[in-house]
Write a protein that binds this DNA or RNA. Structure first.
Length: 295
DNA sequence: AACACATTCAACCGCATCGGC
DNA sequence: CGCCGATGCGGTTGAATGTGT
């Protein structure tokens, strides 16, 4: 027991590589270093920088990883000339610099999938993130806490309660499907990028045209399934898509809009943004929630 | 314009787990 | 089998930003 505690303590000290000297969020706290081997070898104290990353640090990290690949994060920190911990480098890469990251608001389809997967796995954020290409566990976790949990708080119910689960399955998820379908039902009007305001090209990446597997597996037919059976309608226990087989891999363009509209410079980008923003402020959702629990 | 309060999200932390030796 | 460094995960924090008064 005591041994385990001591070991953990040593690990924390060596992992963090410094002795705390200020508040944890100070941007340029000086720390005493660490890596005892380094300290003994070099006979000097190394600083570990914390707080927001600078453009130069990002460039160094990107450059190093693009040449040497991911992994061995402590080495990355050392050889890229970054005064950061390996953990900090890893996090920065995974959550911000990775080239395959998808930026911008969480789309309706993604929101629906998050609700689906949360109801199956709970707060296994990294596992959920594996099924949302380009999204990070941090992003999903933040989305959950700032949007969904907030909604739960306003309902004055616990996220682990039956009431919350029922609302999720019987109100939010069907409403998301409705919105997704209502958007997919009006492609003619929505595809004119000239007469409609354009989206932010920096936010949305261009995507290939193509049909949406995702859409085909979430039809309105199962939109009001009971909370107990719901989760099995479209996802296998490992999260794969039953419709497409247990080992189905989501295609790269699985989040494409129906009909092959592109996000970039399209009316769809703005429309999706608007819908996402409005979902949690939707009066009719409150009415439905009320109706559900007044019965 | 100035301030207070609310919200968002990047980055941190501690702990758990993995994998090489 | 146990040790130990590296990595991964989920919870938390607080600076930056947005919104209301």
């Amino acid at each position: 027991m005591i041994y385990t505690l001591i070991r953990q303590l040593i690990q924390i000290i060596s992992c963090r590589g410094y002795r705390i000297q200020g508040s944890c969020m100070d941007a340029h706290v000086s720390h005493f270093g660490p890596a005892m081997s380094d300290a003994s070898e070099e006979g000097e104290l190394l600083e570990v920088k914390k707080g927001p990353w600078t453009v130069e640090e990002d460039a160094r990290l990107m450059n190093y990883v693009s040449v040497n690949g991911e992994g061995r994060w402590n080495s990355v920190a050392r050889f890229a000339g970054l005064k950061r911990t390996g953990k900090s480098c890893r996090l920065r890469w995974l959550n911000y610099l990775r080239p395959d990251l998808r930026r911008g608001n969480i789309t309706l389809q993604e929101q629906l999938l998050i609700l689906e997967l949360y109801s199956r796995w709970g707060n296994r954020w990294s596992k959920i993130a594996q099924h949302l290409p380009g999204r990070t566990d941090n992003e999903i976790k933040n989305y959950w806490r700032t949007r969904v949990q907030k909604q739960a708080r306003q309902m004055k119910c616990d996220v682990n309660s039956k009431r919350f689960r029922d609302t999720m399955h019987n109100v939010w998820m069907p409403r998301l499907r409705e919105r997704i379908e209502s958007l997919s039902a009006q492609p003619g009007d929505a595809t004119d990028p000239v007469s409609k305001p354009s989206g932010n090209p920096a936010v949305y990446r261009p995507v290939q045209s193509g049909s949406s597997v995702f859409y085909s597996s979430f039809s309105s037919e199962n939109s009001m399934a009971s909370s107990d059976s719901y989760a099995d309608n479209s996802l296998a226990s490992d999260g794969s898509c039953i419709t497409e087989g247990p080992n189905y891999q989501w295609p790269e363009n699985w989040l494409d809009l129906p009909g092959g509209q592109e996000y970039e410079s399209s009316y769809w980008a703005d429309e999706m943004d608007r819908m996402v923003e409005n979902l949690w402020n939707d009066e009719s959702i409150w009415a439905l929630q009320k109706q559900l629990f007044d019965d």
